[in-house]
Amino acid sequence: MDPQGFRQTFGRLKAEIQKVIVGYEALIEEVLTALIAGGHVLLEGVPGLGKTLLVKTLAQALDLRYSRIQFTPDLMPADIIGTNVVMQDEEGRRFFEFQRGPIFSQIVLADEINRATPKTQSALLEAMQEHAVTAAGVHYPLEEPFFVLATQNPIEMEGTYPLPEAQVDRFLFKLRVPFPALDDLVKIMERTTGPEMPAAQPVASGASILAMQALAREVAVATHVKDYVARLIRATHPEAEGAASQARRFVRYGASPRGALALLLAAKVRALLQERANVSFEDLRAVALPALRHRVILNFEGEAEGIDPDDIVRNVLEETPELVRVRR
């Protein structure tokens, strides 16, 4: 695949999803960016905003196997991964056979992930990290591309198990699903209350997604741009030299090295979409919020003051110079 084909495929996917999903153009772009960067997405928004529909539509447009897991407090890891069951053959001999769980798909919707217990959450998160599961000592690789979209409700905290920081870190992006604008709301009503429900058609295959992922990794990154990424990450750490002022005050733990990878991979995808074969500072700034907002852990003061991690990331971007050698 060449950059031209990359952009065309991306455009087709986006257009196909937009046939079903009204508005959310930036959100769709970010979801697709995470998919091509090879990461997973945590969608955060109140119920009824179309998160599930977005994921289903994506699966339809991609012609990939899709499964949905509704996380509940009684959900067990085996319900996600699968389990060995006793089977009997024609001759009456019994044996164990691994019954694959819903994780064995290419696009997995983990709905309301914060409602399951940490044990179950970690079963999913392990699969997200390794792209494989292990059951009864047997290693089962997951089919590529493997893409998990988890949703959580930020308001309802009763009976939930918030994801631990180490597990949140495994999501490439944390995307906030906003309430639709007035015009978009009207269009949603028009589309969904009519006699025919719009449906997306497959426009890209799993192979083309893999090719896009490979091409994105070929995007060149200049040394000083990598240096900027490293300085951005360090600036989120309160104790680090060059830390941003708000990070020093309100942050308990800054972004991990995985944050730097997420930032750079997403920026590479964006560079290709911007008709460039190199990453620029602008790309990094554009993907910094979704890539870093869930990796900045606020301290007590930050929580008490109601500080939004997005403000911390913006402050980091403001206070970190692009070229440290430029002196005027």
């Binding site: 091409l215 070929e218 060149a220 990154v221 200049a222 040394t223 460039r276 074969a277 190199n278 500072f281």
Partner: peptide, 25 residues
């Protein structure tokens, strides 16, 4: 120029490992 020149210079001078998109850069 969105870091085009510096990336191209680094690729040309061998400071960066050449990639499949080096020519494009």
């Amino acid at each position: 120029l969105r870091e085009r020149l510096s990336t191209a210079l680094e690729l040309a001078t061998g400071r960066l490992r050449p990639t499949a998109l080096a020519g494009e850069v």
